[in-house]
Design a protein around this nucleic acid. Structure first.
Lengths: 210, 210, 210, 210
DNA sequence: TATGAATGAGCATTCATTCAT
DNA sequence: AATGAATGAATGCTCATTCAT
């Protein structure tokens, strides 16, 4: 069997395990998914999983990484030219909303990710990759803001990097809470999710544009 | 023994258990605190706990409720007269920051609380109380906004209730992220926590005031 | 139920677990005995064991301790008056031989016991008790030697404490090896175990008596 | 490829595996060294190890055998002429002490080796070889004693073969215990390892010389 | 009311060995 | 001869909850 074919097979099995984990994580949460369950779902023995992955964390990190890449790529497409600031801004917001809807687990992981120790980020590996993807996401927003400043459509006293974090955290907070209080909002405010999100994103935008 | 006396005794025992749980939750986190540990701390048997509380969740909910009340009362004091809008706004922000610092556990629970089923909120009980406290917190912010509108210092196209949620979620998001990325912010942005928070709250304020 | 009766019941259950462990340890060795097996043998659930013992080590230590006490008490009876040095010496040797035959596992544990950290010995507990029992065994041999010196039947240049360890280690070594090479001895030397042991103990004695 | 060439290659591969195992055993103990680790160290696949060795035990036995040979050869050099009995005796003691220090793992295996079933020793194989090396070690001590008797420096009532075992077991016991109770001896007896060993070997010698 | 006792279900990880290719 | 892949069987320990008394 050619080396290539073999690699494909390996990847195939890894993928089955990852797919099983992904499915179960989505279904019942990461912590409540046991290695036993992943093995059952992947139709292999528990020890086989340990042939392909060092431990549960490696699986988790891998899947978290996948989703960060997914998000990063989706965000990348929001700012094709950075010419129309507002359009790009709303695209980013909506991409995040979509991401949250599709992958609520990983949306939360974006927010709750603990400050990883510097050393672990330095050495190459999954953790470093996750960190890099996070940086790239920041850069996307950073680039957008930079061009916004260049095109003179943003307030003058804005500081670039802090504003990246300000936007990121506000938007995330809005999406997080909207999702949790969805029913409540409908009942109390009479607004559906989308309406409220649009209202909030529009209002938030006021804080940075002229 | 009179019924009243009995009630007092019951409350007394509940309080001891709650105090023990509170202490241990703060110390080592909710999940890592076992019923065994609570019992040991409360100097009673594990089963005694089950006499006073249905299960661990009831204890958790109770303590979550307590902290919501704490927060609610602290927020109440931020808006003594609602005359100075900005002053009240910053007071609220800072109160939330302080709360997060003192009770990080319960700050997160504010955000991650899952949309409880309507039925459970309807029938009186802890869940309903928690819900009510949440409402009251919303009302505080609502009152502030209302007076802001009356004093004519807010944008005209603001809608009251949605703005309450918008503010609440943005502020929470900002605090959440700041706390998690503290080291990172220091390193990357060169700003310490307080500076970044002030910058963000100030910027956020721009989105609603004239 | 009286406190006494309760204590008896507790002790009863502890004893069942200990008896099961003792039996299985003897049968298949300490390491190869799992907590699952002990539970099965004791006819209780694995978690019940953890109600009565902190962990496997506590069980092991307890049983090791029991056997050290057994040995200590048996040795104590070997030197009723310390008048007849030789008689006491041989009694000690034979007691050790018997102990090895009955409890080979714990005989080895006597020899392989790792130098425990001082701290653990200082604070009261099983480990301290084991240590103390070891000391008492040393003392028994020490007392015997002392009286031997007083009765003027030992070489003059003997140093008390080092000789205690010298004797202890030589006798143990002899018993250990005899047991392992039993068949071999029979075949090669044409001596049975007892004969060889007697020969060795007699020879060893020559090294300390006048 | 000639049969001889093939054999050399096979031996070459076996040696690599053995060297890896030897290194890792020394480093972290036999039990804590996994076949995976040996394979990694030997830069071959785990299954390849099973081509060259039946199982882990065969590897262990082989390495145990190697060390017995090492010891045997070192002991051989202790009795170049058997003229000076005492000198040879001390040389043997010190060789054993050195061996224990360098290869504690295999020193213990000398003592704990279970009485292997006769059948396994009869048929040629590793176990027979180990057995033979043991015999040769006995013979070295035996020869020394014989010449001691011939030179008339030993007690007259000594029996040759039993004395071989007597010495071997006593010396081993002394070294074993000294090593385990090193700290304790220092503290309690105020003697360091070397002093105590010398004292013990000297005392033991008294039991066989005139 | 209070509690001692008991437990089922879970959990991540290890490892020597086998077997088809 | 060489090996990649797969795995069964363990293993020590945790914990919320129940129930008879």
């Amino acid at each position: 069997m050619g080396a290539k074919k073999k690699d494909i097979l390996i990847q195939f099995n890894r993928d089955i395990i990852l797919a099983s984990a992904r499915k179960l994580f989505q279904l019942s949460g990461i912590n409540r998914t046991s290695m036993d369950e992943i093995a059952r779902e992947a139709d292999c023995s528990k020890s086989t999983i340990y042939v392909y992955f060092k431990n549960k964390d490696e699986i988790i990190n891998y899947i978290v990484y996948e989703h960060m890449v997914l998000l990063r790529d989706a965000l990348q497409e929001c700012t094709p030219d950075n010419k129309d600031f507002e359009r790009s801004y709303y695209a980013i917001c909506n991409t995040l909303v979509d991401f949250q809807e599709q992958y609520p687990l990983y949306f939360e992981s974006l927010l709750s990710e603990i400050d990883v120790e510097q050393e672990k980020i330095q050495q190459p590996g999954l953790l470093a990759d996750i960190y890099k993807a996070g940086e790239q996401i920041n850069d996307i927003i950073g680039e957008l803001l930079k061009s916004g400043i260049e095109h003179n459509c943003l307030r003058e006293n804005l500081e670039l990097i802090p504003t990246v974090f300000y936007l990121w955290s506000s938007i995330s907070g809005i999406i997080l809470l909207t999702n949790q209080k969805q029913k409540y909002l409908k009942m109390r405010v009479g607004m559906d999710k989308t309406m409220f999100l649009n209202y909030s994103f529009k209002t938030l935008l006021q804080s940075i544009i002229k």
